[in-house]
Simulated assay, not measured.
Amino acid sequence: METTRILFIIIISGLIGYFTNVLAIRCLFRPYEKIKFGPFIFQGLIPKRKDEIAEQIGIIVAKEFVQEDDIIGQLISQDDEIYFRSFVSDKIKSIVLEKTSFLPESIQFQLVKRLNEKVEKESPKAFNDFKELAENQIREKIDLQVIIEEKIKELDLKEIEVLVLQVASNELKAIEILGLIMGLAIGIIQALVSLYLL
């Protein structure tokens, strides 16, 4: 009879430890909406602090992981100068041929040739000026922190929950098992205390 009581205490303690951790993990997300119970208000930790979490993630990502200069460097690189020069050259050729269609082809050819030589000479500076202007415009108009923050705020809470549970399923399962082990350990201590001291 004493053995049954000890086993009962150990099993109940283990189950309490397990289900307490399961409930704690679920309470990270649920309930999604505020529930009033008298003077108390219940809401999942992540839904309750979603805006604050979004803001903090935005700050961390924008300052520590992805900076504007990294993105700008990917958008406009020195390699793009070739395409820039080719684009300008083709535009000039098209405009010259259109506007001087009344002239003989040899003169048109000479005009295009001279203008292209000028483009070749001036294009590095023109490209750098364009690159600097574009970079400044991007810096003024794009705020990575705000973009990230808004995107997180737009996420559906169910989607966030599914994502977190998928990514951290092994770790969360380990926390649940740890609750069971700790509960069993506490149950054993309680059983020993009740057996020898009471």
Rank of each mutant, 00 (worst) to 15 (best):
M1S: 05
I6Q: 10
L7G: 09
I16N: 07
G17Y: 01
V22G: 01
F29A: 10
R30Q: 14
P31E: 01
Y32H: 09
Y32M: 08
I41W: 12
Q43F: 08
Q43N: 10
L45Q: 05
I46Q: 00
D51A: 09
A54S: 07
A54P: 03
I57K: 02
I60C: 01
I60T: 06
V61G: 04
V61R: 04
V61T: 03
K63I: 00
V66S: 04
V66N: 05
Q67E: 04
D70G: 04
I71R: 09
Q74T: 10
L75F: 13
L75G: 05
D80C: 06
F84K: 12
R85Q: 14
R85T: 15
F87C: 08
S89M: 10
K91G: 11
I92M: 14
I92G: 02
K93N: 14
L111S: 10
V112R: 10
V112D: 06
R114F: 14
N116F: 01
N116A: 05
E117G: 13
V119P: 00
E122Y: 12
S123H: 09
K125G: 02
D129S: 11
F130T: 00
K131A: 07
E132H: 08
E135R: 15
I138T: 01
E140D: 13
I148C: 05
I148Y: 06
I152Q: 07
K153Q: 09
E154L: 02
K158W: 12
I160R: 05
E161I: 00
L163T: 07
Q166P: 06
Q166F: 10
Q166N: 15
V167Q: 10
A168C: 13
K173C: 02
E176C: 11
L178N: 03
L178S: 05
I181H: 04
L184C: 10
A185D: 02
I188G: 09
Q190R: 14
L192Q: 03
L192H: 03
Y196M: 12
L198P: 06
